[in-house]
Design a protein around this nucleic acid. Structure first.
Lengths: 183, 183
DNA sequence: AGAAAACGAATCAATTAAGATTCATTAGGA
DNA sequence: TCCTAATGAATCTTAATTGATTCGTTTTCT
């Protein structure tokens, strides 16, 4: 690639924009730019329209998360190891994860990729069920939903100061796998 | 009261508006009105400004949920019974619950009531921990966050057709209490 | 049927946001 | 240092949104 540092910088801007958009979905482009410390003009040069911006963010987030899913090698090793790799990688892309969840619904932009993502997680949990790791009295898509919501919810709770940042991974894993009941 | 049916009708409109606002937060008042099957003018007569509308919705939702919490009598009987009453009542106000979660962040309107709601749930889970019902290696506020996110997340998943409506209560309870691991 | 209330379409002024451009300044690299 | 690319402030046009009003129609209740 001719420009190595550009994508990194773009990634930073995209992550910041994702966070700002989740925080205030109704913010104007002006406010959005201000929220991430750039001018309206620079944001304009980055993406000419809001529609383009959202589309670019969804594409980027989907790509990063898909890469995260791929790197997690969910098909390798035990389900628990796969889940832990997925968790660690997801926590390194909090903003994009939160954004993608938030704009999950109006993902008419890339319905195929989103469905693919869903399918990947669904298949992972299904395999985990067949391997005896996950309970079988909850359907795999429901497991995906529970996982995603605990993950995103606790990441958000951390931002709001409701839970500590350290130990977040262990908290997500514990809550998802074993629940809140005392054993 | 002089007008018995008015509040019921208002409640219907508010619930529909809550749902529409969660679905498309950036919708204009015109689109919002159309989404719930009324004209822009009627919506205007209902609430003159968007700010008023949000404030009214937050107040109403907070009130309904608080009433729900009160009716759940979380301090009566065992924690499990309290949790089940809370769950059943919450599921009867899906729209308002989802709305309140969604607009949780910009709840600068009634910070006191929101904090009170948090405090009520936190205290409930803390009592449950002291009663030996909930695990003590997860802080009570984290339990609140996990509960709320599983509840709202699965209600939303149901709307998206990812999980079946029937059995939603049992699913939430199972996921929250016992987690996804096979026992 | 007749009166009162509710509703919606249309219109309008004022405000705001989006999209685009220009120009001066600044930061960085050759 | 000098040149270039990047940035931001300001401006401008156009489009969209808001808040408000009027008036004809429909619904509803008696």
């Amino acid at each position: 690639m001719a420009t190595p540092g550009v994508e990194v910088e773009d990634g930073r801007i995209l992550a910041a924009l994702a966070l700002a958009l989740v925080d205030r979905p109704r913010a104007s482009l002006q406010e959005l730019a201000g929220a991430i410390g750039i001018s309206k003009t620079t944001l304009y040069r980055f993406c000419r329209t809001r529609e383009q911006l959202i589309e670019r963010l969804i594409n980027h987030a989907t790509q990063v998360i898909s890469e995260t899913l791929r790197k997690a090698e969910l098909e390798q090793g035990g389900p628990l190891e796969g889940l832990r790799r997925l968790l660690a990688n997801s926590l390194e892309h909090r903003e994009l994860t939160a954004f993608l969840m938030y704009y999950w619904k109006d993902a008419s932009v890339t319905p195929s990729e989103e469905a693919e993502w869903n399918a990947t997680l669904d298949a992972f949990f299904l395999r985990g069920q067949q391997a005896g790791m996950f309970r079988i009295d909850i359907a795999a898509p429901a497991l995906t939903e529970i996982w995603v919501n605990i993950l995103v919810g606790l990441m958000d709770a951390e931002r709001r100061g409701r839970v500590a940042r350290s130990g977040l991974a262990a908290l997500v894993e514990r809550a998802f796998l074993y629940g809140a009941a005392a054993r």
